[in-house]
Amino acid sequence: MPLLDIQDLKVSFHSRNGEVRAVDGVNIQVEKGEVVGIVGESGSGKSVTAYSLLGLIPMPPGKIEGGKALFQGTDLLSLGKKELNSYRGAKISMIFQDPMTSLNPYLKVSTQMIEPLEIHENLSTKRALHRAIESLEQVGIPEAQKRIHSYPHEFSGGMRQRVMIAMALITKPDLLIADEPTTALDVTIQKQVLDVIRDLQKDTGTSVIFITHDLAVVHEMCDSVNVMYAGRVVESAPASELISNPLHAYTQGLYRSNPSNTAKGQDLHTIPGLPPDLAKLPPGCSFRPRNTLGDPSLCLTDRKPELVEYSESHFVQNCPGCLARPEPSEPTTHA
């Protein structure tokens, strides 16, 4: 049994333009000790998927329409507030995108780090403080003993993200959700923070859901990857397999739009257009209008493509247009 088994999750938001189906039937499994990546553009539903696990979707306007999220056999989506609070921060923790705003500016770092221990493990302040210092040392904060009594604004962005990581892992959770943890950081710091997460993950055996839009990061961090587009998983495979053999036109597009995968002097590939309006999704393949690498004329127009197993543990949406591989010589019109 996987540690976390998300089955057919559907989340929608009510907006002025009608019902927005942010997540539409997502299946994701996370094994114990595995790092699972969720990749996609902004608005593809990757964060909403993760947030709904912890009940962090604002309701209203959000609504979980259906599906299950079995965590160690318990359906997280059916838990009450109190029960959910005993999971949050204890068994499942989260790291957020912007470290500059995710720490309370008026409280010392020590106070904030002790809080989860006080709540979930009933530790005395002294012992909790000891654990907090240990945990800061683990994420590579120098002079943790002193720095723990500082306020958040006295830390740099990278340091704050380290504090957040330390705080999320202080209770030794079984699952860590990292929501674009490096997006708001300097490129020079990104690598360090990724290393910290990777090292701690290896040491503690915590499973990680790693949300990002950077395929390069995925390659480095994750064991398996789910590519999301318009609220659905379009491709899911082990990381190395996905990088070496991307099947779906969207995955290929993402991969090719990374400068390091493009030869010098060659134009960088871009995926034209914008993600579709989730309130007015066409009935067929939602990637059709932006599909320049496959053959949009073959894309499904009458029904949503299903996720099928293409080769061993490599799943992809079986939309003939997105899977089509025309001759590479064909120029990409919008590139």
């Binding site: 949050r88 957020f96 995108q97 912007d98 705003t101 309370n104 989860p116 709540i119 957040m164």
Partner: peptide, 15 residues
């Protein structure tokens, strides 16, 4: 976001 972070750590509303 720090309020969201506090919620994700399992803190009660009062707290």
């Amino acid at each position: 976001q720090y309020v969201e972070a506090a919620r994700s750590l399992g803190l009660s509303h009062t707290r």
